[in-house]
């Protein structure tokens, strides 16, 4: 029972830290990561289909490195090494470097999602379009991509949910998201399990609502096609 009274006490004092700051920054970071990831991920996916071998190799290397190393390590590099390359960063709060890392990380995964989404479209669709005399570009834009989007969206939704959880690693640099809220309050109260329970419920609520929204979107997409 003390467990629940403790939670009530913590929430009474720190509700803003969890509900406003914590959820706010978690959503902010996730949206930046996914929106940036979708944009730059599309560019990377384009680069992967490019005829320039060097570009292709560079992008593939980037994707492999990002996928093959822990996000926490990438965050350390972003926070401590990026400012050496971009001096402007060192005078900005860590959330900038952290956002850049999350965007790069997400771009790599999204580029793979887009690539496989495009490759999953039957090659015959492209051939039929080209055989009618349409250019590669038109065929891509009006035939292949619209079909690829149907494969891509659900995977992109999963990526969003993964990113929401991955932002927790940014708490190493106290950027303010939910896990940072946990660290702050735990540091003050030493009530670890209670604080963990609170952020656990909040993370679950976030991802649950998100996945419901995504499912609803998917249903609408299916109904239309």
């Amino acid at each position: 029972m003390t467990f629940f009274t403790n939670i009530a006490k913590i929430m009474a004092k720190y509700w803003q830290t969890f509900l406003l700051q914590g959820i706010g920054y978690t959503l902010l970071l996730s949206v930046i990561a996914v929106a940036g990831g979708a944009f730059f991920g599309s560019l990377l996916a384009l680069a992967k289909r490019s005829k320039l071998r060097i570009l292709k190799a560079l992008v593939n290397a980037l994707v492999e490195v990002v996928r093959g190393t822990p996000v926490l390590l990438q965050l350390y590099i972003g926070v401590f090494v990026f400012p050496m390359l971009i001096p402007r960063l060192s005078s900005l709060p860590y959330i900038y470097s952290v956002s850049i890392v999350l965007v790069i990380n997400s771009s790599a995964y999204v580029s793979e999602i887009i690539r496989s989404g495009i490759e999953a479209v039957d090659i015959g669709q492209m051939e039929a379009a080209r055989s009618l005399g349409l250019t590669q570009r038109t065929a891509m834009l009006s035939i292949v991509l619209p079909q690829a989007v149907k494969n891509i969206l659900p995977a992109l939704g999963n990526e969003f949910i993964t990113v929401v959880k991955e932002t927790s690693l940014a708490s190493t640099f106290f950027v303010g998201e939910l896990m940072t809220a946990y660290l702050k309050v735990k540091g003050n109260t030493y009530l670890t399990m209670e604080c963990l329970a609170i952020v656990g419920v909040l993370y679950f609520a976030l991802t649950f609502i998100l996945s419901k929204l995504l499912k609803a979107m998917e249903r609408r997409m299916k109904a239309r096609a």
Partner: peptide, 21 residues
């Protein structure tokens, strides 16, 4: 090449109708 192709109609074994149209 696209001009040339416009003068040739192609019919495929597996139809290849555009699924999204």
């Amino acid at each position: 090449i696209n001009l040339g192709r416009q003068k040739m109609g192609m019919v495929f074994q597996s139809f290849n109708l555009f699924n999204n149209k």
